[in-house]
């Protein structure tokens, strides 16, 4: 079940719109934050709060790529593979990650630490190649940097290489 806090947040957000249903994306974000993914309960809870049929929630969840229907690792590596990154070394990064983590696209490491995803352009082309890990951007990637990031995340739980406010050049 959604926590009191989450429910309160959602009821607040509902007020921003003339139509309850509009709060569905924000509500799903909150639910995903709570559970790490969108479980059946989570979606039902959102449906109840927004007075929707659960199917109306599910149709939305299956349309947007950032909602996840199954639990993923603690860190979701979302590597950009679109043109600018691709021609600036994304492919090396990808094959390195696959080798190092021993997993393929969509898979999660046995220790449930990392999930690997390939995504389309994340608006970091100027600093290609780039990836997003959970909410943080990591840019101008090199194989070495990737190793450092993974090590830091695995050990201290955050990486010094995360991008700050974006400026390019």
């Amino acid at each position: 079940m959604l926590s009191e806090k989450a429910q309160a947040e959602i009821t607040e957000i509902v007020k921003r719109y003339p139509v309850r249903r509009s709060a569905i994306l924000p509500a799903l974000w909150i639910a995903q934050r709570e559970f790490g993914y969108l479980s059946e309960e989570a979606m039902r809870a959102v449906a109840n709060l927004l007075e929707l049929n659960p199917t109306q929630v599910y149709e939305v969840v299956t349309f947007y790529t950032m909602y996840s229907l199954k639990p993923s690792g603690r860190y979701v590596l979302q590597v950009c593979r679109t043109l600018s990154c691709a021609i600036c070394g994304a492919m090396e990064i990808i094959s390195h990650l696959e080798k190092r983590l021993g997993i393929k696209e969509g898979e999660t490491t046995p220790d449930r630490l990392f999930t690997l995803r390939y995504v389309e352009c994340i608006a970091a082309c100027g600093n290609a190649p780039a990836m997003q890990i959970n909410q943080d951007y990591y840019e101008n990637l090199t194989v070495q940097k990737v190793d450092q990031i993974l090590n830091e995340l695995a050990t201290v739980g955050k990486s010094s290489l995360a991008s700050g406010p974006f400026m390019c050049p």
Binding site: L83, A123, C125
Partner: peptide
């Protein structure tokens, strides 16, 4: 929504 591949200006306008 700045999603057009190759485009990253709005992100800067927003964050900075």
């Amino acid at each position: 929504d700045e999603s057009e591949p190759g485009t990253f200006k709005d992100r800067q306008l927003i964050e900075r």
